[in-house]
Design a protein around this nucleic acid. Sequence first.
DNA 1: CCACTATTTTATTAACTGTTGAAGTTACGA
DNA 2: TCGTAACTTCAACAGTTAATAAAATAGTGG
Lengths: 114, 114
Amino acid sequence: MKHAHPGPTVAMTSSASSERAAQLFRAMGDGARLRILELLAGKELCVTEIVAAFGDKFSTVSQRLRILRGEGLIVRRREGTHIYYALADRHVADLIHNALAHAAELEAGPAKES
Amino acid sequence: MKHAHPGPTVAMTSSASSERAAQLFRAMGDGARLRILELLAGKELCVTEIVAAFGDKFSTVSQRLRILRGEGLIVRRREGTHIYYALADRHVADLIHNALAHAAELEAGPAKES
DNA sequence: CCACTATTTTATTAACTGTTGAAGTTACGA
DNA sequence: TCGTAACTTCAACAGTTAATAAAATAGTGG
């Protein structure tokens, strides 16, 4: 999604932070990943438990966790052979709750014609 | 991103609403689209103005607006030959502000090893 | 060190997404 | 009704992303 601004671009609210926010949204913009976040909002869990909760493949879940972790949305902690994942901090929990709340309000309007 | 659950899947917080929320996130998960939303958070604008603000192609902006509208994030209103776009409602404005605020807090942690 | 469990990494492939030129639509004024 | 301005839609190509099998890594208990 490159921007190849040829000429002088004007009013750009905050190109950098928008990009960062967009990254976060993109990471959360996947049902499976979002469900993992919701699950972790309840409590810290190890990979096996997450896999069991959804019935997905191990490697699939691992990849999803990698993406979420890459964006700093979750953190992990090792305990023996188990690795526990949890939401990175309260900001993430807030963000998720807030978004889900608003999402409930926003009916998926298939763009009616005026 | 198909889920081909073969066996009986267990604890799924809210598959349906998560999916809806994920759709919204996905729509906002693009720097260019998010910047349009931020711009519209300021005031209603017509396509030409949005194009001018970023220096993109007309058709490019139009497609982005179509996606945002498809998710019900923005609405449009015709006035002569101009079509004005605006955030759908206050929920969207809240969602954006909230998200940007939290995003600012979340440093893009490249997943340090514990 | 070996077997075993838990989890990640790698590589492949299929599916999706964004951008854009070109063609189509709508409204308005001459 | 022609011309034109403001937009949208279509189609295609390029780049990105997700799921998964297979191989690799790390920790634990013999």
